[in-house]
Amino acid sequence: MKTWTVDDVMTVKVVCARVDTPYREAVDLVMGRHVDALPVVDEQDHVVGVVSEADLLHKIERSGVDDRPRLFESRRHREERAKAAAHTAGMLMTSPAVTVPAGTPIAAAARLMVAVGVEHLPVIDDRGHLAGIVSRGDLLKVHLRPDADLVADVWEMLRRVPGADEKSVEVSVHDGVVKLSGRLERRSATLTAVALAAQIPGVADVADELGYEFDDSAV
Score class of each variant (00 low, 15 high):
M1A: 15
M10V: 06
K13G: 03
K13R: 14
V14D: 04
D20G: 01
D36G: 13
V40A: 04
V40W: 09
D45L: 09
H46G: 04
H46P: 09
H46S: 10
V47H: 09
V48E: 10
V50S: 13
V51G: 10
E61V: 15
S63A: 15
D67G: 14
R68S: 12
P69G: 03
P69L: 11
R70W: 14
R70S: 11
R70T: 07
E73I: 01
H77D: 11
R78G: 00
E79R: 15
R81F: 01
A86F: 11
A89L: 02
M91A: 14
M91Y: 00
V98P: 10
T99E: 05
P101N: 06
A107F: 13
R111W: 07
H120E: 09
L121S: 03
L121G: 12
D125C: 02
D125K: 05
D126A: 11
A131C: 11
G132L: 13
L139W: 02
P146E: 11
A148P: 02
D149W: 12
L150V: 09
V151A: 12
V151Y: 01
V151G: 03
V154Q: 02
W155D: 08
E156F: 07
R159A: 12
G163Y: 09
D175T: 07
D175M: 10
G176R: 03
V178Q: 09
L180Q: 01
L184D: 10
E185C: 02
S188F: 01
P201G: 00
P201Q: 05
P201L: 01
P201Y: 13
G202P: 07
G202Y: 05
E213K: 15
D215A: 07
S217C: 12
